[in-house]
């Protein structure tokens, strides 16, 4: 076989177009990127596994119902999370009652009414800054405003350190998030819908009420419910306005008394239990975290379900 035959032009071109050696540096770079991604994912898996494993002993010894409905106690064998569960539930209702109407209204003004003037620009910048304020600073606001100044109304018996103060504080905390997500949902509504409504003689409010809001509802709903999930996990502001773990109004108090009484919440309880030295509380904390994460998952799943459902109807 002749060794001398020169390679044809086609072979030469193909050879020079395909890299002759492997791109080692490129491969290493890609591997490093994959590694960072895997580590980020692995952290979540390890965290969930750690919590699940730590909580095993609780589920082995007692039922979920027993854990959820038992009172707070210094004895790890019998301690439950009843007050924290009720506290978190009431706080969420308060948060929603404050942040949703106020936030959605503000978003409607900013997106539908406001012209591009100084006021609108100030409000927009202000809301973005509010969203970046650390949650503990909202706790200070709650402490100064709802606990000290308005303490006589929010909780006269407990120096203002009541569920009402906690709920109001969380409401203010998530308000900027509700406004921002609602503005985005409203912005996604095509202008043709607005023009169509005006074209048939609708007033601005009729246009918003009957045409824009129904279209934007899934987005607004998802955003607001997700912001509720954020409030659900907050502990720092509640610690400042007086969320506690030791004592809670007994069941025979009237609803108003209960609202003005001392309170606890699940994240606050995680903080307290995690800092207790007794061995039994380690497993209890993990079990409480499992309950919290499942509740969060439910909140988020609700948001996604509602979005899908509403979108189908449209």
């Amino acid at each position: 076989m002749a060794v001398t035959s020169a390679p044809t032009a086609e072979v030469l071109v193909r050879r020079s177009l395909s890299a002759k050696k492997r791109d080692v540096r490129g491969r290493v770079f890609e591997a490093v990127l994959i590694l960072t991604l895997l580590v980020s994912m692995a952290v979540l898996v390890v965290l969930l596994l750690d919590v699940a494993l730590d909580s095993r002993s609780v589920w082995g010894e007692r039922t979920l119902g027993n854990f959820l409905t038992s009172q707070l106690s210094a004895d790890p064998a019998t301690a439950g999370i009843r007050q924290a569960l009720v506290g978190s539930l009431i706080l969420m209702i308060f948060t929603a009652a404050i942040a949703f109407p106020l936030g959605i209204s503000a978003a409607i003004f900013l997106e539908e009414y406001a012209e591009d003037n100084r006021f609108a620009r100030i409000v927009n910048a202000n809301i973005r800054n509010l969203a970046g304020v650390p949650s503990i600073v909202y706790g200070l606001l709650g402490l100064a405003l709802f606990v000290k100044i308005l303490g006589g109304i929010t909780g006269p018996e407990v120096e203002g350190r009541s569920v009402i103060s906690g709920g109001l504080t969380l409401g203010l905390l998530v308000l900027p998030i509700v406004i921002i997500t609602s503005v985005e949902a409203l912005r996604a509504v095509p202008n043709s819908i607005r023009e169509g409504a005006f074209g048939v003689g609708a007033t601005k409010w009729q246009m918003i009420r009957h045409h824009v809001l129904p279209v934007a509802a899934p987005g607004i709903l998802t955003g607001t419910i997700l912001s509720l999930g954020r409030a659900f996990g907050e502990a720092a502001p509640l610690l400042l306005v007086g969320g506690i773990t030791t004592f809670f109004q007994s069941g025979d108090a009237t609803p108003v008394e209960q609202l003005r009484g001392r309170f606890s919440a699940m994240p606050v309880l995680v903080f307290r239990w995690a800092s207790l030295p007794q061995a039994g509380f380690r497993a209890l904390t993990a079990a409480l975290i499992v309950v919290m994460l499942v509740a969060l998952l439910l909140i988020n799943a609700t948001a996604i379900y509602l979005r899908n459902r509403f979108e189908k109807e449209l």
Partner: peptide
């Protein structure tokens, strides 16, 4: 009136900032 209502809601956000700054 409706416009005024929505304006109030958005102005509340400025009040919150003021409240934070004043209390701090």
């Amino acid at each position: 009136a409706i416009r005024w209502f929505f304006w109030t809601a958005s102005a509340t956000s400025i009040l919150i900032t003021l409240a934070i700054v004043l209390s701090l």
